Deep mutational scan, measured.
Amino acid sequence: LTVEVTLDGRRIELHGLSEEAHEILRHALERNADDKEIKKILEELRK
């Protein structure tokens, strides 16, 4: 799955996400998580 997010003013596409990762990010974006929170989530998903 692919998600497009804006971090530090740049639009980035995240490819190859699992369903779980996609859901976690989608929920964070829906509640307008800040860049710091999104980065933390991405860091966790990379593990």
Rank of each mutant, 00 (worst) to 15 (best):
I24A: 11
E4M: 05
I41K: 01
A33S: 06
K47Y: 10
A21V: 10
L14H: 02
R10T: 14
H15I: 09
L17G: 01
E4S: 05
G9L: 00
R31N: 14
L29A: 06
E23G: 10
L7R: 04
I41P: 00
R26W: 02
H22I: 14
S18H: 04
E30T: 06
E44F: 10
T2M: 09
L7Q: 04
H15G: 09
K39I: 14
N32L: 12
I24N: 09
K36V: 14
L14Y: 04
I24W: 04
H27P: 04
L1Q: 07
E19G: 07
D35V: 11
K40F: 07
R46D: 12
L1R: 13
K36P: 06
L17H: 01
S18W: 06
I12A: 03
I12P: 02
R46N: 14
H15Q: 09
E4R: 02
D34C: 07
L25G: 00
E30V: 05
K47N: 13
A33K: 04
E43D: 12
L1N: 08
N32G: 14
G9T: 03
E19L: 12
I41V: 06
L45G: 03
E4T: 14
E30F: 02
E20Q: 12
D8V: 03
S18G: 07
E13T: 13
T2C: 14
L25R: 00
R26V: 11
E20M: 10
T2F: 09
A33H: 05
R46A: 15
E43Q: 11
I12W: 03
R31C: 10
I41D: 00
G9H: 02
R26Y: 04
I38E: 00
T2D: 05
E13K: 08
L45V: 08
E20L: 10
A33W: 07
L29T: 06
E19T: 11
R11A: 08
L45I: 15
T2Q: 06
L25Q: 00
L17K: 00
L29M: 12
V5W: 00
R10G: 08
L42D: 00
A28M: 07
D34G: 11
L29S: 03
E44C: 07
L1D: 05
G16A: 05
I38Q: 00
T6F: 06
L14T: 04
G9P: 03
H15E: 10
R26M: 14
L7C: 14
E20Y: 12
R11I: 15
T2S: 14
I24C: 06
V3Y: 04
E23T: 08
L17T: 01
L25V: 08
H27R: 14
K39S: 10
I24Q: 11
T2P: 05
K36H: 14
S18P: 07
I41S: 00
H15S: 11
I38F: 05
E23A: 12
D8G: 09
H27E: 15
A28L: 09
E23R: 12
R11H: 09
K39T: 10
K40E: 13
R46Y: 12
T6E: 12
I12S: 02
E30D: 12
I41C: 01
E44S: 12
A21K: 03
L1F: 13
E19C: 11
V3F: 14
V3K: 03
L7T: 05
D8Y: 00
D35K: 05
G9S: 03
I41E: 00
I41G: 00
H22E: 14
L42K: 00
R10N: 14
D34K: 07
K39A: 11
D35S: 13
T6V: 15
L7A: 05
E4P: 00
L42V: 10
R11Q: 11
I38T: 01
K36C: 10
E13L: 09
G9C: 04
L1T: 08
E20K: 11
D35Q: 11
L7P: 04
T2E: 04
V5F: 02
S18C: 05
E13W: 03
H15V: 12
E37Y: 07
D35W: 09
L25E: 01
H27D: 15
K36E: 14
N32E: 09
E13Y: 05
V3D: 03
G16R: 04
L45N: 03
I12T: 06
I24M: 13
G16S: 06
H15T: 12
L1H: 11
K47V: 15
A28Q: 02
L25C: 03
L7H: 05
H27T: 14
S18R: 03
R10F: 14
K40I: 10
K36W: 13
T2K: 11
L29R: 02
K40M: 13
H22F: 15
I24T: 11
L7V: 14
R10W: 06
R31G: 10
A33R: 03
L17V: 06
I24K: 14
H22N: 11
G9E: 04
E4I: 14
R31V: 10
I12M: 08
V3N: 03
H27V: 14
I41M: 06
E44D: 13
E4L: 08
T2Y: 07
N32I: 06
A33E: 05
D8H: 04
K47F: 12
